[in-house]
Design a protein around this nucleic acid. Structure first.
Length: 235
DNA sequence: GCGACAG
DNA sequence: ATCTTGTCGC
């Protein structure tokens, strides 16, 4: 089993990581129309951790956007490349996620990841970072609010409320995907606008709160981590 | 300085 | 993220 290590020059300090975000931020594109929901392919990415063995497992699952059926999958196991620091999540997951995406034998299409894109302290969360590094269209769908306040959206599926930054910019939305259930938190990552990001999210979550993309990727990366832990020392 | 804080 | 039992319900 190959273990993905962080590439040479990977940030080793929080200061260096923030500098990377500030430098890459200007490459983000948010004004592309992109394909409408239900067309082409859509890919979910997620990771699971084993701190005891210092391992992280990533999964990428490609779905047919029209039927939400799985058309391709790939996983990768790596060394944890950065500690968890709010605002620097991407540095913890990206090397292994890139390996999983690279092992895919199908066109990823739109990528959906856990976490945020534009709705980030420096406007450069995981979804934007992954998009700039791969050139793919990426959106972020998080399960919990981050640093931005929001009003409670209406109880109906499809209701939403803005995530507003201090300067008044709408950086994301709290979007209700199931009636009466806690909303998800959507933001644009790269080459997709916020309206489109929310439309895709609703299309991908016809039955449960979370998009099928993240549900599939979550299950797959957990399975990959169990297999990796079974043959790794420690723990 | 203190608290909050995606996964 | 992860640690964790039972329980209510489709």
């Amino acid at each position: 089993m190959e273990i993905v290590e962080a590439p040479a020059g990977w940030p080793a300090t929080e200061e260096a990581a923030r500098a990377v975000q500030d430098a890459l931020r200007e490459r983000v594109v948010l004004d592309e129309a992109g394909p409408p929901p239900g067309t082409g392919t859509v890919t979910g990415v997620d990771v699971a951790y084993d701190d005891e063995r210092d391992l992280v497992a990533a999964a990428a699952v490609v779905l047919d956007a029209a039927t939400l059926a799985v058309v391709a999958e790939a996983t990768a196991v790596g060394r944890v490349s950065f500690p968890y620091v709010p605002g620097l999540l991407a540095f913890r997951e990206i090397p292994t996620v890139l390996a999983a995406l690279g092992a895919l034998r199908a066109d990823p299409g739109l990528v959906v990841c856990d976490g945020y894109g534009r709705a980030h302290p420096r406007r450069f969360g995981l979804a934007s970072h992954l998009g700039v590094l791969t050139g793919l269209r990426v959106i972020g769908v998080a399960k919990n609010p981050f640093v931005f306040d929001h009003a409670e959206p209406g109880t109906a599926r499809g209701s939403w409320t803005p995530l507003l930054a201090g300067d008044g910019e709408e950086v994301g939305r709290a979007l209700r995907t199931r009636e009466g259930v806690k909303p998800v938190f959507v933001s644009a990552g790269h080459r997709v606008g916020l309206d489109a990001a929310c439309a895709h999210t609703l299309h991908l979550a016809p039955e449960f709160r979370l998009p099928e993309t993240t549900r599939r990727a979550d299950a797959l990366c957990r399975a990959a981590l169990r297999e990796a832990a079974a043959v790794a020392p420690g723990g």
